[in-house]
Design a protein around this nucleic acid. Structure first.
Lengths: 113, 113
DNA sequence: TACGATAGTGCAGTATTATTGAACTACGGA
DNA sequence: TCCGTAGTTCAATAATACTGCACTATCGTA
């Protein structure tokens, strides 16, 4: 028996409040090459969003692994996920993270080609 | 039986070449609150060096744990360790890291109080 | 030279984190 | 209502991190 979803119509994602975003958390989330590539892809549409599979760094990655990486990024406060129809839309929480740690994301992502 | 040291008079530390320092490696090394504090302490003496125990973030930390954290920082290319008498002197590889990732360390450490 | 004190390393066990397949929920369309 | 697509959760395994203990290394003192 699986644990049921919190309500019957949509998956609820947990997003930390801006003040709960930590430096170590952000660095840890971005310390994985795959997550760096995912985040970079999301960043390329600054204001827009991408589904999980559209942001996948490589096609052969298992769905569950991908899901795991998105959760790490989400838990760190770097992305916001909303369910839209059959897919999840993921967007970078740029303004919030930047308000908390001004210049940090820009300084890091400058080096991710 | 323990594996012997590489020579009988001093421990050899491995330091990556500047071009082998990776973004993910740097972020991973600094993604631990204790290591952030260690690195910050070392950074406060910009040009100088500190022994491992002098840079310890809290006195009750096990020596082996401390040794482990210094190794992670060293393997990431963030610090250089040299044996000086009975203690190890650890200094930040500021110029080298900064040449590889200009502005990165400054942007990160700005938020480590 | 031998001994004790101090500084730190290496190993091994445990604990946490990452990866993946399988089973599942959720939504949309034929 | 059934099928396909998108993604999650679980359980199992693999890879890393943390810590206690035993050890090496060096210095000072006698």
């Amino acid at each position: 028996m699986q644990r049921p979803y919190e309500n019957e119509h949509m998956t609820r994602f947990v997003h930390p409040a801006p003040e709960d975003i930590t430096l170590a958390g952000v660095l840890g989330a971005l310390s994985d090459p795959m997550r760096l590539r995912i985040f970079k892809k999301l960043l390329e549409r600054r204001e827009g969003s991408l589904s999980c599979s559209a942001a996948a760094p490589c096609p052969e990655m298992a769905k569950s692994t991908l899901s795991h990486h998105f959760r790490v990024l989400r838990d760190a406060g770097l992305i916001r996920t909303t369910k839209q129809g059959v897919e999840n839309l993921n967007g970078v929480r740029w303004d919030e993270v930047n308000a908390r740690f001004p210049g940090l994301l820009k300084a890091i992502m400058k080096f991710q080609p």
